[in-house]
C-alpha cells in the first residue's frame, strides 16, 4: 500500500515537472494557481491543523509578501525570484512581531488577533501611499513568466507539504503536535511550547509570503483589497478543513478538489459558493473533523502519513 502510494507520487511529480512542455498557456496558469492554493492551505495546516492554533488572518502574510516583493521589483529593480523570497522574509518578520505577544496566550486570543491583523495590514498598506501606491495599487512592468512561476509555485507547495510530512513523521516534528494534543502536558514534559508555537507560526508564514510575491508577479498588478482579501483566508481554511486538517495530504486533496470545482462551476455563483464554504466548515467541524481524508483513513485503515 505504502509502496504503491510512493510510486504513484513519484510518477505524478515527474508528470507535473514535464507538464509545462506540453501544456497550453491556460493549462499552465490553471496549474500554477492550483499550486498556490495547495501551498496556502498547507501553510494554514501547519499552524492550525498540526499545532492547533487557529489563524483567521493568514492572508496577511500573503499580502505582506506580495507588497514586499512588489516594492522591491518596481522601485528597486529586483528580480522577482529574490524579491519573492524577500516577501517570505517580510512575512516571517510580521509573524514574529505578532506571534510573540499573541501566542503566549491560549487559542481565542491568537485567533482573533489574526482576524484583526489582516484589516490592519490592509489599512496600513493603503495609508503609506508613497511606498505602496496606496489604493491605486502597484503595477509590474515586466513580461509574463508563467512557466518559471509554475515551477516556483510547485516548489513552494512541495516545500510546505514536505514540512507537514516532517512534522508528522519525525521525533522533532512531533513536538509541534504535542501543543495541539495537550499543551500543559507538553510543558510538564520539558517541551518549550512557546518556542515551538512561534516556530510553527513562522514556518507557516514564510511560504504564504513567498507565494504572495509570486502571485504579484504573475498577475502583474496588486492592490490592498485584492491581496488582503478575507476570502483568501476563508478559502485556505475551507480547503484544509475539507481535505483534512492535521494530515499531510488532506490540504492537498482539499485544495485540488475545491479549486477545480471553483474554476469549473462555482465562480459563476459567487455568493452561493461562499455560503457553501461556510456550510462546509460547519459540516466538517461537526461531523468529520479530519475531513475527507480522515474519513478515508478510518474506513480503509490507512497509515497517518497518507
Amino acid at each position: 500500500m505504502k509502496r504503491a502510494f510512493q510510486v504513484g507520487l513519484a510518477v505524478l511529480l515527474f508528470g507535473l515537472a514535464l507538464y509545462p512542455t506540453m501544456a497550453s498557456g491556460y493549462g499552465i496558469r490553471f496549474m500554477l494557481q492550483l499550486f498556490m492554493w495547495v501551498a496556502l492551505a498547507q501553510s494554514w495546516n501547519l499552524i492550525s491543523g498540526l499545532t492547533g492554533y487557529v489563524s483567521f488572518g493568514h492572508v496577511a502574510f500573503f499580502g505582506t509578501g506580495a507588497y514586499a516583493a512588489g516594492i522591491l521589483v518596481t522601485t528597486h529593480g529586483w528580480h522577482w525570484v529574490p524579491a519573492s523570497l524577500a516577501g517570505g522574509v517580510a512575512a516571517v518578520i510580521l509573524a514574529l512581531l505578532i506571534g510573540y505577544p499573541c501566542l503566549r496566550l491560549k487559542g481565542p486570543y491568537f485567533a482573533i488577533s489574526m482576524l484583526g491583523l489582516n484589516e490592519v495590514m490592509r489599512v496600513l498598506v493603503s495609508y503609506f501611499e508613497g511606498l505602496t501606491g496606496g489604493g491605486s495599487g502597484l503595477s509590474f512592468p515586466t513580461q509574463p513568466a508563467s512557466v518559471q512561476i509554475y515551477y516556483a509555485m510547485a516548489l513552494s507547495a512541495l516545500a510546505v507539504t514536505g514540512a507537514a510530512y516532517f512534522i508528522i513523521t519525525s521525533r522533532f516534528g512531533l513536538k509541534f503536535m504535542t501543543i495541539r494534543e495537550d499543551e500543559v502536558a507538553a510543558e510538564a514534559m520539558g517541551i518549550d511550547t512557546a518556542r515551538y508555537k512561534l516556530g510553527a507560526f513562522v514556518l507557516s508564514a514564510f511560504v504564504p509570503g513567498v507565494v504572495g510575491g509570486l502571485f504579484a508577479r504573475d498577475t502583474g498588478y496588486i492592490e490592498p483589497i485584492s491581496v488582503f482579501a478575507l476570502i483568501i483566508t476563508i478559502t485556505m481554511i475551507v480547503m484544509a478543513l475539507f481535505g483534512g486538517k492535521g494530515t499531510v495530504w488532506g490540504p492537498v486533496l482539499g485544495a485540488v478538489t475545491l479549486f477545480v470545482l471553483q474554476e469549473l462551476v462555482w465562480a459563476r455563483f459567487l455568493f452561493f459558493y461562499q455560503i457553501l464554504f461556510g456550510a462546509i466548515i460547519v459540516v466538517v467541524v461537526l461531523l468529520m473533523p479530519r475531513g475527507i481524508l480522515g474519513v478515508l483513513q478510518q474506513r480503509y485503515h490507512l497509515p497517518r502519513t497518507i
Binding site: 492550525s48 455568493f271 455560503i275 464554504f277 456550510a279 466548515i281 460547519v282 467541524v285
Partner: peptide, 30 residues
C-alpha cells in the same frame, strides 16, 4: 450548532462560528 461544540476543544467552536459567520454574511450579500 454551537451546543455541539461547547465542550470540544476551542478550535472547534472558533471554526464553527467562523463558518456560520461566513454563511450568514454571504446570505446577506445575496
Amino acid at each position: 450548532f454551537v451546543r455541539r461544540v461547547v465542550d470540544a476543544p476551542e478550535l472547534s467552536s472558533l471554526l464553527l462560528t467562523f463558518g456560520i459567520s461566513i454563511a450568514l454574511v454571504n446570505m446577506a450579500q445575496l
